[in-house]
Amino acid sequence: MSILVNKNTRLLVQGITGHEGLFHTEKMVAYGTHVVAGVTPGKGGEWVLSGKIPVFDSVKIARNATGANTSVIFVPARFAADAIFEAADAGMELIVCITEGVPVSDMMRVRSFLDQKGVRLVGPNCPGLLTPSEAKVGIIPGNIAIPGNVGVVSRSGTLTYEVLYALKNLGMGVSTCVGIGGDPINGTDFIDTLEMFQEDPDTEKIVLIGEIGGTDEEQAAEYITKSVTKPVVSFIAGRTAPPGKRMGHAGAIVQGGTGLAEDKIKALENAGVKVADHPEQIPELL
């Protein structure tokens, strides 16, 4: 068992003929993910990966032809909101947006629309999802995680890989890894994911990787106190980050005294969460 993606995922890649889209489609297929279709407007009728995957002009046509139920988006930032709207309108159950640099106002419109429609989005500016041995949707390297009972949720990309790799080196496996992304406004948040992990019978422990900026970790801590009975271990990046500076991720900024790493660590510790000093400590704390 797992959350969000598994063997039954029928994946569609938006932006499949682009450089990154094609590179990662190949990796997802090699991992065993059922990639059933690609979409690039204007390139319908073509095939990619030596005739293995058909390309369609729109998500609706692709879905009707292939029964795709999940979409992963690799289109450039200026087209990302349109791609998400299109996927939601075409009836995708889950949309995963990898694209970095999506304007905040676009994401506010997207959230408002998706909340009304009840469609789940993961990302943007995220590495996607990995359910080891079942499905890889996005860009998380498949070879750094093994199946197991630890659920991982993170605002970061490569930092998440760091943790997966450290877990694997000690023989610890993962149920599903969810990269929720580093933007100030995203689709799925910590609380959504914690709720799914709490309900997933095969997830026994949870790793939550946060960073400076916003108050999502504080809200997650409140939720953990109330509703999570499984043990949670955490790491928060950015203890040494100067205030007022955007640390790469659009959402990673300490502003007006909020978003500090210390406050997040304190809130999580008060919720009974063990917080690691560095990511390689996480397996010990589990």
Binding site: E20, S156, I212, G238, T240, G248, P279
Partner: peptide, 28 residues
């Protein structure tokens, strides 16, 4: 990666050093 870049700064500090910068070379 931004998260890993922040973590690298943090861990340098943790082991008694001081980071000179944050630098994320990004994807690709």
């Amino acid at each position: 990666g931004a998260g890993l870049a922040m973590t690298t700064m943090d861990i340098i500090k943790l082991f008694g050093g001081e980071p000179a910068n944050f630098l994320d070379i990004g994807g690709g």
